[in-house]
Amino acid sequence: MPGGGPEMDDYMETLKDEEDALWENVECNRHMLSRYINPAKLTPYLRQCKVIDEQDEDEVLNAPMLPSKINRAGRLLDILHTKGQRGYVVFLESLEFYYPELYKLVTGKEPTRRFSTIVVEEGHEGLTHFLMNEVIKLQQQMKAKDLQRCELLARLRQLEDEKKQMTLTRVELLTFQERYYKMKEERDSYNDELVKVKDDNYNLAMRYAQLSEEKNMAVMRSRDLQLEIDQLKHRLNKMEEECKLERNQSLKLKNDIENRPKKEQVLELERENEMLKTKNQELQSIIQAGKRSLPDSDKAILDILEHDRKEALEDRQELVNRIYNLQEEARQAEELRDKYLEEKEDLELKCSTLGKDCEMYKHRMNTVMLQLEEVERERDQAFHSRDEAQTQYSQCLIEKDKYRKQIRELEEKNDEMRIEMVRREACIVNLESKLRRLSKDSNNLDQSLPRNLPVTIISQDFGDASPRTNGQEADDSSTSEESPEDSKYFLPYHPPQRRMNLKGIQLQRAKS
Rank of each mutant, 00 (worst) to 15 (best):
G4C: 13
G4T: 11
G4Y: 13
G5Y: 14
G5E: 12
P6W: 12
M8H: 13
D10S: 11
Y11N: 11
Y11K: 09
E13H: 12
T14G: 13
L15E: 13
L15W: 12
E19Y: 13
E19L: 12
D20Y: 11
A21R: 13
W23L: 06
W23H: 05
W23K: 08
E24R: 07
E24D: 08
E27I: 03
C28G: 07
C28I: 06
C28E: 10
R30T: 01
M32V: 13
L33N: 00
L33E: 00
S34G: 03
S34P: 01
S34Q: 05
I37E: 01
I37G: 01
P39E: 01
A40P: 04
K41Y: 02
K41D: 00
L42F: 04
P44V: 01
Y45T: 02
L46I: 05
L46K: 01
L46E: 03
L46R: 03
Q48K: 03
Q48N: 05
C49I: 04
I52G: 04
D53T: 03
D53P: 02
D53L: 01
E54V: 08
D56M: 00
D58A: 00
D58E: 08
V60M: 04
L61R: 00
N62Q: 09
A63N: 15
A63S: 10
P64M: 12
M65H: 06
M65G: 01
M65A: 08
L66E: 00
P67H: 09
P67L: 10
S68P: 00
I70Q: 07
I70G: 00
N71L: 05
R72H: 00
R72W: 00
A73N: 08
A73E: 00
G74R: 00
R75I: 00
L76D: 02
L77F: 07
D78G: 01
D78H: 02
I79A: 02
I79E: 01
I79V: 06
K83S: 08
Q85A: 08
G87F: 01
V90L: 14
V90W: 06
V90F: 15
F91R: 05
E93M: 09
L95S: 00
L95Q: 06
E101Y: 07
L102E: 09
L105T: 12
V106R: 00
T107D: 02
G108W: 05
E110Q: 14
P111I: 06
P111W: 04
T112F: 08
R114M: 06
S116D: 12
S116K: 11
S116T: 08
V119T: 15
V119E: 15
E122R: 07
E122L: 04
H124S: 15
H124N: 14
E125H: 12
E125F: 15
L127P: 08
L127Y: 13
H129V: 12
L131S: 05
N133Q: 15
E134Q: 07
K137N: 06
L138F: 06
L138S: 09
Q139S: 14
Q140H: 09
Q140L: 13
Q141Y: 15
M142D: 07
M142I: 15
K143W: 08
K143D: 08
K143F: 08
A144V: 10
A144K: 10
K145Y: 10
D146F: 11
D146M: 14
